[in-house]
Write a protein that binds this DNA or RNA. Structure first.
Length: 898
RNA sequence: GCGGGGAUGCCGGAGUGGUCAAACGGGACAGGCUUAGGACCUGUUAGCUUAGUGCUUACGGGGGUUCGAAUCCCUUUCCCCGCACCA
């Protein structure tokens, strides 16, 4: 058995020595940028990573062989919490921990045969990278895209830092799953909301992104059109504005709810009898806010604040409540309540005995308040709405919105769910925010020529507080403006900032005048294929889109969207569950590689499931892949002597040779199409079938040139999946150079002969039948074999069909005409008709010959004679009588042995 | 609740109107090789039947369109994922 690990090491070394995967801009060649989401360098590579890279590498190799100039880089998302936590726990320098991990991981990636251009490796934790984070931050600041504000923020007590909205999942921290708290803090933000509209609209440009991801982004941006209406408060100069998408219901307003955090609440109740009660209520809500406020099934809780507002439409006075179901984060933090037409308002009104007023009713039956058991949210006609009565409610939204703007009650607005991106983090292992606070000058940006602001080494990791604050050299500095004493910003940037533009850096990783070289970016970008996990659907993928647009507006690049095509790989599961340490179902890729070699691991991963789908890891499947690999290898090795690289002499080919060449061209076609559509498992399945055919062929008297061509093709099309073994076989067959750089085979449509393929199958079947029969009657050496072929009813059928086809090409009509005449064979007939109608080339052949099978058998007489060492006679049974006499049935060759 | 995706043989998983009893792999069974096991090779693997390009039943359940449905439409059950009191 071949030692696959030895083979892998040998080729890996050769690839590295020759640097064959290094690329540079070449305007003459078409580029292809293949990118995998760069990994966080944790201590070990897991199978999910392996899958990600196997998919990407197969595609990159395929495109390279297809003649593209392929940019396929790798780098590391090297800033982040685990490094810092390791520092606290094991007293290791986070930098050393990170760089050691990177070394180990890149070693594994190399061992797996990934064809990265390693000269473009980037690590986000090195100053030559994060300097440009700071540079971009300053540019954003100039443009007003970065700003500082005090606000209620998400605080993760587990990570001891604030989080962006996108990083909170169901009230919990995305990384450590701690319950997130709210805190009022002054923090740095990126103004992603400036791009909300463009980010939403441009989703339509992302034709080759999974629907799921696009939907998630749309929902996250959460655009809704409506009106903002201002309500005057009775006996006060204040007014409250509310946002609604249902302007048609304004005459049904019976009260208002505002969020407990709403800044007006304290003002309004100050000094009144309600003040104490309200403050108590707010405290209560705040306490339970985290877990319970999120729970939708919970009763809505609220309290009257002792104030009334005036509905500008009908001058009615209605009470103002604060309630936990109003949230400050959305709209204006206040809701005009229409209990008859909103379920939440309805529930609340019922609980606190607030009045109901119907303003929309179904056409058929007038809706009555006292009969309602739930809110009426469907379409209908306006009632109780003065001049708008009788209008269709959808039209009424427009009319009333016009009215609102005309009267100055409010204005049309568009609301988004997306918030600005909070990028400050109270942690050490990240990019320092290049800002200095001076008592005299205030917030002062560090000048561009003094970048990078380096992370200091003299810090203490105590586990509490931001370690950066322990470095006096770092914190205490001089104001760049006035030279006076100043304090440096100790917050670092969210690591998602690093990953928002790393794909641009790959284009010119050494460039030192800007984050990236505009020219290189113009050549390589956008990324043609991006591959990664679904978990980044609204985190990284949204941020990266935002960055690209913002950098474009800074004049740094020209593209609108960074990723042309996105593939989100499925999870790897085992025994029906996600791999996890607690379940004990973790597979270590290193073990698989050790036992079976890297190619087996790659082959199994790509074969076991389509890339987007979940992959169920099973060890038997791994063995199966290994078995195939061995079979493939020995097929070539055992037949080395049958290799001849001379040109095929087409005149010398027998039917079997032609058949194999047909299969081969068919294979190239299918595999190429399947790879282009990411259907790797199908491509591999095609190749497996082909290889087993080649194996059968190899046992025969073969044409050496044909055989060599078959082997060459198999090795070529298999090489994106199992590159090491294919390099070995390529060299074994006697080809020069690397198969990794060889040209992808082209197929010749004229060589694909489906007739030959099906004839070959027929012969195989007949041969099997003969063998079976001989075995049955225990005759080893028959004197003579007579094969009867009878096709009586089919012959009639073809004649009928020919007539019908001359009349029409409509399958339906033909079916209707013919099927009743062949009731007994209706199933076969209904299969044959569309086949023949759709492949007109076959009609004359089938009809004129009476039956193809006879001819095929006739032509292969010699083949049978050789095979069974006996005289063979092929007889066409002209009618069923003769056939029956010799035991031949319609539609099938019968065999008579003498 | 809203949105997205699923349900196929013993298993993983292809297949989106006719060439489908359904690729490929695994498992199981039988046979070959072998002292035996492993490895390897061949065949079988819905039921009946067979010397079969035969018949019947079948791609979660029910209904429909069609000469014809795993595939299209409607409906229903179940599962997974994302968002979540969004005004």
């Amino acid at each position: 058995m071949a030692d696959f690990n030895k083979i892998s090491k040998k080729w890996r070394k050769l690839w590295e020595e020759k640097g064959i995967f290094k690329v540079s801009e070449d305007p003459k060649k078409k580029k292809f940028y293949c990118l995998e989401m760069y990994p966080y360098p944790s201590e070990k590579l897991h199978v999910g990573h392996l899958r990600n890279y196997s998919i990407g590498d197969a595609l990159a190799r395929f495109k390279r062989m297809k003649g593209f100039n392929v940019l396929y880089p790798m780098g590391y998302d090297a800033f982040g919490l685990p490094a810092e936590n390791a520092a606290i726990k094991h007293k290791i320098d986070p930098e050393k921990w990170t760089l050691d991990n990177i070394k180990a991981i890149s070693e594994q990636q190399k061992a797996m045969g990934m064809s990265y251009d390693w000269s473009r490796k980037i690590q986000s934790c090195t100053p030559d990278y994060y300097k440009w984070n700071q540079w971009i931050f300053l540019k954003f600041l100039e443009k007003g895209l970065a700003y500082r504000k005090k606000s209620s923020v998400n605080w993760c007590p587990g990570c001891n830092t604030v989080l962006a909205n996108e990083q909170v999942e169901q009230g919990k921290c995305w990384r450590c799953k701690s319950v997130v708290e709210q805190k009022d803090l002054e923090q740095w933000y990126f103004k992603i909301t400036n791009y909300a509209d463009e980010l939403l609209n441009d989703i339509n440009k992302l034709k080759n992104w999974p629907k799921r991801v696009k939907t998630m982004q749309r929902n996250w941006i959460g655009r809704s059109e409506g009106v903002e209406i201002d309500f005057k408060i009775k006996n006060s100069d204040e007014k409250i504005s509310t946002f609604t998408t249902r302007a048609d219901t304004v005459y049904g307003i019976t009260y208002m709810v505002i969020a407990p955090e709403h800044p007006l609440v304290k003002k309004l109740v100050k000094g009144t009898e309600y003040e104490e009660k309200i403050n108590k209520f707010i405290e209560e809500v705040k306490k339970e806010e985290i877990s319970e406020r999120i729970d939708e099934t919970k009763d809505k809780k609220g309290i009257f604040i002792g104030k009334y507002f005036i509905n500008p439409f009908n001058k009615e006075e209605c009470p103002i409540y604060i309630a936990d179901y109003a949230v400050m984060e959305y709209g204006t933090g206040a809701v005009m309540a229409v209990p008859t037409h909103d379920q939440r308002d309805f529930d609340f009104a019922k609980k606190y005995n607030l009045p109901l007023k119907v303003v929309i009713t179904p056409k058929k039956k007038l809706l009555k308040e006292d009969e309602m058991t739930e809110a009426y949210i469907d379409e209908g006609i306006l009632v109780n709405s003065v001049q708008f009565n009788g209008l269709d409610n959808k039209k009424a939204i427009e009319k009333i919105s016009d009215f609102i703007e005309k009267k100055g009650f409010g204005k049309r607005t568009i609301n988004y769910k997306i918030r600005d991106w909070l990028i400050s983090r109270q942690r050490y292992w990240g990019t320092p925010i290049p800002i200095v606070y001076c008592d005299k000058c205030g917030i002062v940006p560090v000048p561009e020529n003094r970048l990078p602001v380096l992370l200091p080494k003299d810090v203490k990791f105590s586990g509490t507080g931001n370690p950066l604050e322990t470095s006096n050299n770092f914190v205490n500095c001089k104001c760049p403006k006035c030279g006076g004493k100043a304090r440096r910003e100790t917050d670092t940037m969210d690591t998602f900032v690093d990953s928002s533009w790393y794909f641009l850096r790959y284009c010119s990783p050494e460039f030192d005048k800007a984050p990236f070289d505009k020219k290189a970016v113009e050549y390589w970008m956008p990324v043609d294929q991006y591959i990664g996990g679904i978990e980044h659907a609204i985190l990284h993928l949204l941020y990266a889109r935002f960055f690209t647009k913002a950098l474009r507006d800074l004049g740094l690049c020209k593209i609108d969207e960074p990723f042309k095509r996105l593939m989100t790989q499925g999870m790897v599961i085992k025994d029906g569950a996600k791999m996890s340490k607690s379940l004990g179902n973790v597979v270590d890729p290193a073990d698989i590689i050790k036992d079976y070699g890297p190619d087996t691991a790659r082959l199994f991963i790509l074969f076991a499931a389509l890339p987007e789908k979940e992959l169920d890891w099973n060890d038997q499947g791994v063995k199966g892949a290994f078995k195939f690999l061995n079979r493939f290898y020995s097929l070539v090795e055992d037949n080395k002597k049958n290799i001849s690289l001379d040109k095929i002499d087409l005149k010398q080919l027998n039917s079997k040779d032609k058949y194999m060449l047909s299969l081969m061209n068919h294979l190239i076609k299918d595999v190429t199409e399947n790879i282009e559509q990411f259907k790797f498992s199908l491509a591999i399945s095609d190749i497996m079938q082909f290889v087993s055919q080649v194996g059968k062929y190899a046992n025969k008297n073969i044409n050496k040139e044909v055989f060599s061509e078959l082997v060459k093709t198999s090795v070529l099309v298999m090489s994106p999946f199992i590159p090491f073994v294919c390099e070995e076989l390529w060299a074994m067959v006697g080809f020069k150079g690397f198969v990794s750089l060889a040209e992808w085979p082209k197929y010749d449509e004229s060589m694909i002969d489906e007739k030959a393929e099906s004839s070959e199958e027929l012969l195989d079947n007949v041969k099997k039948d003969i063998a079976y029969l001989l075995n049955l009657i225990k005759i080893e050496k028959p004197k003579k074999l007579t094969l009867f072929v009878s096709e009586k009813w089919k012959y009639k059928f073809f004649k009928e069909l020919k007539k019908e086809i001359e009349k029409t090409r409509d399958i339906k009509a033909i079916m209707k005409a013919i099927i009743p005449k062949f009731k007994e064979n209706s199933k076969t007939v209904s299969k044959l008709i569309p086949l023949i109608v759709k492949n007109p080339g076959r009609i004359p052949l089938v009809i004129l010959d009476q039956n193809t099978e006879f001819n095929v058998l006739q032509n292969s007489k010699k083949l049978f004679e050789d095979e069974f060492k006996s005289a063979v006679e092929i007889v066409k049974a002209e009618d069923s009588k003769q056939a029956k006499a010799k035991n031949a049935m319609p539609g099938k060759p019968a065999i008579v042995v003498e």
